[in-house]
Simulated assay, not measured.
Amino acid sequence: MPYGRRSDRSSPSFDELLAEGAAVPTAGWDFSWFVGRATEARPSWGYARAVAERLGGRPGREVEAVLDVQTGGGEVLAFALDEAGRAVPGRRRPALVVATEGWAPNVTKAAGLLRERGGFLVASADGPLPFADGVFDLVVSRHPVKAHWEEIARVLRPGGSYFAQHVGPRSAHELVEHFLGPQPAERLDARHPERERRDAEAAGLEIVDLRAERLRMEFHDIAAVVHFLRKVVWTVPDFTVEAYLPQLRALHERIRTEGVFTAHSSRHLFDARKP
């Protein structure tokens, strides 16, 4: 999410804030609406620009075919393609640019962004990848719901790479537990990077680099919480304003008293290679 906090806001009521957060469109991964209402620190590695560098390639190791798994609204891949062209003058884009996305509100947006850049969007739910073996030099993904390691390894060419930013363990657990209560360790640690390392290696991939960071999140009003939970749907999977009205009211009062609700996201960067 972007940084900054609006100082010119009046003091809307609880009901007005709920209505505002419930009315914001959720398609795509554009978080600009949160400016002034919520912040989230960014990982130090700068994922989107790092993908752009990968797309730029190196002499003798150009990327000819790239796949973005669970692309969301296509914003990250579109940015990376544009930056790659600027960063490496004369370097053409990969000949094959493909992304998958299974959430209907994102499909149209992502298809348009990629079409403008010579790419393609395949509407595909999370699961087996609808591609032949050994098609891609590079597979990327930002915040996949789940990494299907055997499928990733299958569609990579020998020597190809998987470069991705994953959501880590206990991400935003302070927010999760406010709404759902204490969670079992199995859920909290399901995305642990070392567990994913073992799964990737079991699928035949070599881990070149694996880095993890925990990052501060701040919510400055309850509208931001409502929009976040509607947009990042796996945080509280059955969230609706009506179902969680008592928890929302309690959190609204806490933010009014303390000025901010603080949580922490967890991210890790995977750089894996197919031998």
Rank of each mutant, 00 (worst) to 15 (best):
S7P: 00
R9Q: 13
S13T: 15
A22W: 10
T26F: 00
W33D: 08
F34D: 02
G36K: 06
A38C: 07
A38G: 02
T39K: 04
A41I: 00
R42S: 13
R42Y: 10
G46A: 13
Y47Q: 10
E53V: 10
R54A: 13
G56M: 04
P59G: 02
G60P: 08
E62P: 01
E62H: 09
V63P: 02
V69G: 02
V76M: 03
V76K: 02
L77H: 02
A78W: 01
A84N: 09
R86G: 09
R93I: 03
V97W: 03
E101K: 02
P105R: 11
K109D: 02
R117F: 07
R117I: 11
G118H: 08
F120S: 12
P128F: 09
P130A: 02
A132Q: 15
L138R: 01
R142M: 08
E151R: 06
A153G: 03
S161M: 11
S161H: 15
Y162L: 11
A164N: 03
H166Q: 15
G168F: 07
P169Y: 07
R170C: 14
F179W: 05
E186V: 13
L188M: 14
P193V: 07
P193S: 11
R197K: 15
R198L: 14
A200R: 06
E201L: 11
L210F: 11
A212T: 14
R214K: 15
L215N: 10
F219C: 09
H220W: 15
I222K: 10
A223L: 08
V225F: 09
R230I: 04
V241R: 05
R249V: 00
L251T: 06
T257L: 13
V260P: 01
T262W: 00
T262E: 15
A263P: 03
H264C: 04
S266T: 06
D271A: 06
D271Q: 10
